[in-house]
Design a protein around this nucleic acid. Structure first.
Lengths: 222, 222
DNA sequence: GTCAACATTCCTGTATACAAGAACGCCGTT
DNA sequence: AACGGCGTTCTTGTATACAGGAATGTTGAC
């Protein structure tokens, strides 16, 4: 079904810029100069403009007519709001999944959690991070609603750099594990509201505890 | 705070095209020719391209590299999924609003419902439609989460042409009224889950009953 | 008559040229 | 010395020119 998808330069540039912004390579409010970027990427202004336009739609930059585009890092308030929405969206996924999930997917989730547990035991937080991602993506998928899945992936991606900070908190990994297991248990029991509550708490804690980490206001600059 | 916002032509064109597509002026899968549109809007290809790019991000059209952009009307399945997400998002708004809504806003909602009731009594479905919009927008606002509000508005706008069909169902208006009142009552009681359930049902019925109206697959072409 | 290969043509993607508005600085006036 | 008006310059927004790939039509072979 995927015909060929030879991406054009402007898309590639958009992805790259998106990565740079999410990484925090640009300070908040910084102006993204078209000619400067054109020079940097060795292309003309046209693809740059298209890329910036896409980033505007994503909400990563703000475009002021006749003035230029400026990177727009979310402030603490907006971040907390976004985490709240993320928590609620995942809660919806969980509730829907509780009645829609397949046996097979449930088994996969369990297996995934076992592997997560191993990673936690060995203190491999990177591995855990990866598997945590897979866990959440599976949950989105099992909501049985492809549109919801897409929306969740979108927001998840947007919050990614801020989420990673969260794993650095001491003892967070094992706590996170427990929460995952509660979610799976609720799904297995077909208890939608329990699954929703579990995952909501799991995600919300990231938002609520988040500002404790906000001593550096910039996102994870790895 | 609004500096001037002299919109550029490409934005105006994007809005116009968006309206045309949502109205259903283009059949699904139709190709949007750049030069043709440029000629139609009396501009060069550049603003057209920017507008089409924006529509791509909105999901109204699909861009196939080296082939062109094609309007992409959501199919029945996708529409039902979108309505489901809308219902859940509004449910979240309601639940959050139950504990966050101000007295003043509550009064406004009540007043609005009284006016809605009048409109229903007089069979003025257009008036009702307008006030229904305001009701939902107020609910989004009262979630106390600006990001959630934005997301709700976005999806609401996307579903607008399909939602309108719903009002044509006989007896829907008075039923809708009752549901609104249930929501307000739950909000007043501070009962989040009741408010969520009420609004979820209110919106979901649109999605569920939607395919009964799908004899004509095209959106409301007024 | 049908199919395939080639050439033409059209359209998208990119580059460049042009126009207009905004910011900045300079100079003159008070 | 401070403030205001004017002009320069820089940057965005738009138009146009150019390049490459895709689709289509034609022609030739089987």
């Amino acid at each position: 079904m995927v015909p060929r998808m030879e991406r054009k330069r402007s898309d590639i540039i958009a992805d790259e810029l998106e990565g740079l912004i999410l990484e925090g390579s640009f300070t908040d409010g910084a102006r993204l100069d078209e000619v400067q970027l054109a020079d940097r990427f060795q292309v003309s202004r046209t693809p740059i403009r298209e890329a910036l336009h896409r980033l505007t739609q994503s909400g990563l930059v703000e475009q002021v007519p006749r003035r230029g585009v400026f990177v727009r890092q979310p402030g603490p308030v907006e971040l907390i709001e976004m985490f709240e929405v993320m928590a609620e969206l995942e809660a919806v996924c969980a509730r829907l999944a509780a009645s829609r999930i397949t046996e097979q997917a449930l088994e996969e989730l369990k297996a995934l959690n076992v592997r997560c547990l191993d990673a936690v035991g060995q203190g491999q937080s990177d591995d855990y991070y990866e598997m945590n991602e897979v866990f959440h993506r599976m949950l989105y998928r099992q909501s049985g609603n492809a549109f919801l899945e897409q929306e969740c992936l979108r927001l998840h991606r947007r919050l990614k750099p801020f989420r990673r900070l969260q794993l650095r908190v001491r003892g967070r990994l094992s706590q996170s594990m427990t929460e995952h297991e509660q979610v799976v248990a609720a799904l297995e029991a077909g208890d939608g509201s329990a699954a929703a509550s579990a995952i909501r708490a799991h995600v919300a804690v990231q938002g609520e505890k988040f500002h404790h980490l906000m001593s550096s206001l910039r996102p994870a600059a790895e």
